[in-house]
Nucleic acid binder design. Structure first.
Length: 484
RNA sequence: CGGGGUGUAGCGCAGUUUGGUAGCGCACUUGGUUUGGGACCAAGGGGUCGCAGGUUCAAAUCCUGUCACCCCGACCA
């Protein structure tokens, strides 16, 4: 490892040299995406999309396990609907795409391409909900949304992106709050266990919360360059939308009441998180649970042994595939083994299986881990049992490494000078006291570019000390970071 | 949306200062030899120089405009 690595992946800019360029090299060279002819839009290529599909699967299962159903609402939203909720429209107006014509005819009412679906879903909920017996409504949709962003980056911020948005309606505040927190926990479980990305759960400040929400909670992850990435959000919408859209129900006490609502979402941005948390100078490193290819089988085929090796490799490949492993075999003859090793490492495949003449004689295969480069030989007869265990180890190790990185790059301070210095030099998460006023929040952002990522749940019981900026009594311990 | 940068073959670049037949490396195609960490030889194919105007006998090169992408800031998932 070390020097040698860099020679092997000459197409990828080292992270230390230019992190942004490294990220772009990786997503392009690993064929996760390509730029599309529309500004700010990208094509998610098959390899990237396969990753997204695996992610969808893991999350969709969790969403359904918690009682939600999938549905699909329209892409277009009438202007009048979007404008019903004042905060909401104010939040999204600058970044919506407008549809003004149908064919050659000008529309009597402009349509927006959904930036999120609260309004159109509320419109429907107001028709569907009459009685407390209709509650809760627990619906999720997987779809695309469009936000006309000024600056875009592949996966992290694109004009159009894919996501899931859950929208629920409840009888009262308690149920809505429980739902909001429950789904945040679903996200945490999914992101930490399937994506091996550790996160901090907490509440967003007033300034950072969703446009139109009562409260917003988030999971925040730390990228390997020390910048934070909001990985998922869950909103308690209160009764704001219900009042505007007239979503009422007759309760068991005979009173007409407004429903309490929630919404929650994660996006293809999570792919960016995977890349920036796990990737290294060799390229991608994908967690086994969601990797499109979990293991790549590479037969080593010198001429005299080609036939024997290939036939054995095909046999092993079939058995492993049958066992449920997402495995591919690279038996292309026009590339050398070394070339293939580098190629598949760049694409982040968690496990490489080498099978050559020497292995054949010994009745074994060589397994090489992407996460730590360790090599071991395993008897062919043991592969089916052993590989799933090894993949699990890789998954765990990737999470542990990321967790350790996050902990090592989380600093606590009550000294603003030190705060500024850390933010300038090391970045990472900074835990500090905050008085709760937006002036201090803004001032810190102005002076250090760091924002309050969230007010972490796990620090709620601790003494917040003094506000990092004004020195008054602290109200909360919060996490500051520069963010994507 | 402000400041800076880059657009020449699929990718990375040279050529632009000083206008004169569009080049190099990798990749690609064919044939052959190779194969345990990016193999080698030989012969090939591929570009209206981002786009649109203009100046000129002549434009990748000079002028104007425009678009896209990248970096640094203000807004967001």
């Amino acid at each position: 490892m070390g020097k040698q690595d860099k020679e092997f992946v000459k197409e990828i800019t080292p992270r230390s040299q230019d992190y942004s360029q490294w990220y772009l090299d990786v997503v392009l060279k690993a064929q996760m995406m390509d730029y599309a002819p529309v500004k700010g839009c990208m094509v998610i290529r098959p390899y990237g999309y396969a990753l997204w599909e695996n992610m969808q699967q893991g999350l969709d299962r969790r969403i359904k396990d918690t009682g939600h159903q999938n549905a699909y609402f329209p892409l277009f939203i009438p202007e009048s609907l979007l404008q019903k909720e004042a905060d909401h429209v104010e939040g999204f107006a600058p970044e919506v795409a407008w549809v003004t014509h149908g064919g050659n005819e000008k529309l009597t009412e402009r349509l927006v391409v959904r930036p999120t679906s609260e309004t159109i879903i509320c419109e429907m909920y107001s028709r569907w909900i009459q009685s407390y017996r209709d509650l809760p409504v627990l619906i999720n949709q997987w779809c695309n949304v469009v936000r006309w962003e000024k600056v875009t980056r592949p996966f992290l911020r694109t004009t159009e992106f894919l996501w899931q948005e859950g929208h629920t309606a409840h009888r009262n505040e308690e149920e809505a709050e429980e739902e909001t927190r429950k789904m945040l926990e679903v996200y945490r479980d999914f992101v930490e266990n399937d994506l091996a990305v550790p996160v901090i759960c907490g509440q967003k400040t007033e300034k950072e919360k969703f446009a139109g929400a009562l409260r917003t909670y988030s999971i925040e992850a730390l990228m390997s360059d020390g910048k934070a990435l909001q990985a998922g959000t869950s909103h308690n919408l209160g009764t704001h939308f219900a009042k505007v859209f007239d979503i009422t129900y007759l309760d068991s006490d005979g009173e007409l009441k407004y429903v309490w609502q929630t919404s929650w979402g994660v996006t293809t941005r999570l792919i960016g998180a995977i890349i920036m948390v796990h990737g290294d100078d060799r390229g991608l490193m994908l967690p086994p649970k969601v990797a499109p290819i979990q293991a790549i089988l590479i037969p080593i085929t010198p001429k005299k042994a080609r036939k024997q090796v290939l036939s054995k490799a095909a046999e092993i490949f079939a058995v492993l595939k049958e066992s449920g492993l997402r495995i591919e075999m690279d038996d292309r003859e026009e590339y050398s083994p070394g070339w293939k090793f580098n190629e598949w490492e760049m694409k982040g495949v968690p496990l490489r299986i080498e099978l050559g003449p020497r292995d054949l004689e010994a009745g074994q295969a060589v397994l090489v881990r992407r996460d730590n480069g360790e090599k071991e030989t395993v008897a062919l007869s043991e592969l089916t049992q052993y590989i799933p265990v090894l993949l699990e180890k890789i998954q765990t190790n990737m999470y542990q490494k990321a967790k350790q990185f996050m902990e090592e790059n989380t600093h606590r301070t009550d000294d603003y000078q030190e705060f500024k210095q850390i933010m300038e030099e090391k970045r990472g998460f900074l835990v500090a006291g905050w008085c709760g006023c937006v002036e201090c929040e803004n001032a810190v952002k102005e002076e250090t570019k760091a924002t309050i990522r969230n007010i972490p749940f796990h620090l709620q019981q601790e003494d917040p000390g003094r506000c990092i900026y004004c020195g008054q009594d602290g109200k909360h311990l919060v996490i500051f970071a520069r963010a994507y």
